[in-house]
Write a protein that binds this DNA or RNA. Structure first.
Lengths: 195, 195
DNA sequence: ACCGTAACACTAACCGTTAGGGTTTAAAAA
DNA sequence: TTTTTAAACCCTAACGGTTAGTGTTACGGT
């Protein structure tokens, strides 16, 4: 699996990128709704069926770069220092993600997403999937004694923090505010510390 | 507005009901995906355009009875006894809602929903809307000093409780467990009580 | 050199949804 | 009552995302 990728895989990746680039360009130029799948395919000079073999849906074209969101979250859990507490690590990661989406040169993209109900809905159900894998990561954390339900709950709360902070007037402050609430929730879910 | 509804409105309501009934019958018989909009319209003996003048989408046909979900939540907040605490009232309501969906004769419906990604996605974005109006209701509660962000956060958490409990092995116990966490989160969001 | 198959193309369709335009009929205005 | 308005309905046709069916090309392993 670590062999240098052959010409075939490179071509495939190039095609995928070509499609994603064409899509993003057209979407930003004319607006998401005003661009059809057939337009994107034509711009990228591929067949419609090819486009759909690379992307599962029109919405997926927009969230192409966002696959690492899930990884970053789970790694914030699994890849942290031995005795580093869980929630501050997650808070730090959410901070970074919020900053990445609001300050970056990717601002017009998020503007477009916020303007389209389809895209917002798609994003939300992405987040739900992310919450599930985050819950799994949390549940697998060594030395935990929380129930499965508690882990899934906290995972959802963390995803909520991201979603709510993005819409807040001061996103960074909102992350901190919500995480204070999450920490409290996490505390009472720990059967280890009795009052 | 309290006048007896005229013939016109009665006919309209009857048509709507006829469509909803036909849809549910076909969906349960053949499965949601296997039934097309044109099938439903034919079964209800109306035109496709008529169907869409009563229901915004195919998914909406399934959640027809579920419009009061939103109202029940906001009323649990706005319509409770003067000094009754907020969260126990919400917990009680969520308990009722969870019971209603899992025990009832509506079990096959929820089975169908859980089996269809489209329907799950639709439900989730419904819940988001519900969370928003719940947040508004909470923010409008007299004697509150929480921030807008805190109110929206708690509203989301409550909706999460519903969603997570429905998927848990013991839904009722899950509601209680999650609400313990929500209560803790709500506590730290209150600037009124200093440690 | 050869074969299996992954990547891509083309056509044609399916399905949810909407626009356009027309008919009936309940209800409000005259 | 008569007239007028408009809501509810119907039909046809289409649009746009998505998929099935069927080939064709060319890379990669043998």
């Amino acid at each position: 699996m670590t062999v240098p990728p052959g010409r075939r895989e490179r071509k495939k990746a190039a095609t995928r990128q070509k499609i994603a680039d064409a899509a993003l360009r057209l979407f930003l130029e004319r607006g998401y709704d005003a661009v059809g799948i057939r337009d994107v395919a034509a711009e990228a000079d591929v067949a419609v069926t090819t486009l759909f073999s690379h992307f599962a849906s029109k919405e997926a074209l927009v969230f192409e770069q966002d696959q690492d969101f899930e990884q970053r979250l789970t790694r914030a859990v699994t890849g942290r220092a031995p005795h580093e507490p869980l929630l501050p690590a997650l808070r730090h990661e959410i901070h970074a993600l919020v900053r990445h989406c609001s300050a970056d040169g990717s601002a017009p993209i998020w503007q477009m997403i916020d303007a389209s109900p389809d895209l917002r809905e798609y994003e939300e159900s992405m987040r739900l999937r992310h919450a599930e894998s985050l819950a799994t990561a949390i549940a697998a954390d060594p030395g935990r004694s929380q129930t499965t339900t508690a882990c899934r709950t906290i995972a959802r709360f963390v995803i909520d923090a991201y979603a709510l902070a993005r819409e807040a007037a001061d996103p960074e402050a909102a992350v901190d505010e919500i995480f204070r609430m999450i920490e409290a929730a996490w505390e009472v879910a720990s059967p280890s510390r009795r009052t």
